[in-house]
Simulated assay, not measured.
Amino acid sequence: MGSAAAEPAARPGRGAPAAAVLAGLAAAAPFLLGLLSLAPNRLLSPRPAGLPLTTPVLLSIAVFLLAGLGLALAACRARSLRLAELLAVAMMLALLASAGMAAEALLRDASASARAMPAAGFWMSVLLVCLAGGAAAAGRGAAPSLFWAASLLGGSALLLGGGLESLSLLKEAAARGPEIRAALAQHLALSGGAFLLALLVAGPAALLALRHPRAEAVLMGVANAVQVVPSIALFGLLMAPLGALVAFFPVLRTWGIGGIGPAPAVLGIAAYLLLPLASSFLAGLRLAPPALLEAAAGQGMTDRQILRAVRLPMGAGVMLGGLRLAAVQAVGLATLAALIGGGGLGALIFQGIGQLAADLILLGVLPVVALSLAADALLAGAQTALGARA
């Protein structure tokens, strides 16, 4: 009986076998696809570069491989899945350190304009390690918060310590520091402004639709119709009326409103956010059982009191889910604002595409991904905390 009871505890948790396989693939990727590539300058195409056989590089590679082996072994036991997640962190940091030290060694004998950039094997390994860390966390029924927090902390330490400064991406970032900060501020303003505008419209509209079915039909019809229009087309459709409005009221130019620029982008993004916000608000407001609403009305509570004491507390989780989706969508759609002169991180991405500069593209893409993950994690945490309180 004792051995039979202990047997289930030794089985791998959900996702644990996948973590072992992913760790093996991540360990092989830099050797099969290359860790770094070397280019004469930032515009010319890079060529695969061999791994420098210096002592620091070899030690970091050894740590990377040993961490991968440990991850694969730890993922085979349910009790070791937290250790497997930590080993995924070690694997990630060793990979970053290997790339940084290998780039420094490659550039010692190269020209001053040469650039050492991560090759396909590096990026593939990063992706696979992230998936392995997530699979290990999923195997123990948890979110990969430990993996992400430790990886970000360790990666920041490497970055601040100068361990990655030889990589071309960091050199490009150092050369364009003010431009990146300005683009990031513009992106936050675009996505944040559109999110707030959509929230101001969706909230009252959902309350109106709750009481009037015809208003709901109009609201959801308009919100669904906007989703059919491609984002670039919607931005273009808004340019003409805004330009005409500014022609009649020139004072609007002093407020930054015009046919070209951030104004049509903010309005267009807000229109796209109307559907997830309005639908989640309505679903949340209707979550309270009719019997409970009748009981509250029977006690003499007004509609406003029922809204505050019953509907909002019970539907807050569903509403936060809509806010979460809309926030991530706003960050992503703000990237396209650069096509109509709205600025933001999309300007770096499209500039990099025009110059065939991969580093410049990544300097726009990576902050967008980070902002999306941060917004999602923040609202997911609030949703989880609200569910725990309930």
Rank of each mutant, 00 (worst) to 15 (best):
A244K: 14
L245K: 01
L245C: 11
F249T: 10
P250T: 05
L252R: 02
L252G: 03
R253Y: 15
R253E: 10
W255R: 01
W255S: 11
I260G: 02
G261I: 07
A263V: 04
P264S: 08
L267Y: 05
G268I: 07
I269C: 02
I269L: 08
A270E: 03
A271N: 13
Y272V: 12
L274R: 02
L274I: 05
L275W: 13
L275F: 13
L275C: 09
P276H: 10
L277Y: 14
L277C: 04
A278R: 03
S279H: 10
F281K: 04
L282E: 08
A283G: 14
G284R: 08
L285W: 06
L287G: 07
P289C: 03
P290S: 09
P290A: 08
L292K: 03
L293P: 07
A296Y: 09
G298V: 09
G298S: 12
G300R: 01
M301Y: 00
M301F: 01
I306P: 01
I306K: 04
L307E: 13
R308E: 01
A309Y: 04
L312Q: 00
M314S: 04
A316C: 00
G317W: 11
G317H: 05
V318I: 14
G321T: 09
A326Y: 14
V328S: 09
V328E: 12
A330S: 12
G332S: 12
G332C: 07
L333Y: 03
A334M: 02
L336D: 03
L339H: 09
G341M: 04
G342M: 00
G342D: 00
G344W: 07
L345F: 07
L345D: 05
L348M: 14
L348R: 05
L348N: 11
I349T: 01
Q351R: 15
I353K: 01
Q355G: 04
A357L: 06
A358N: 01
A358S: 12
D359M: 04
L360K: 15
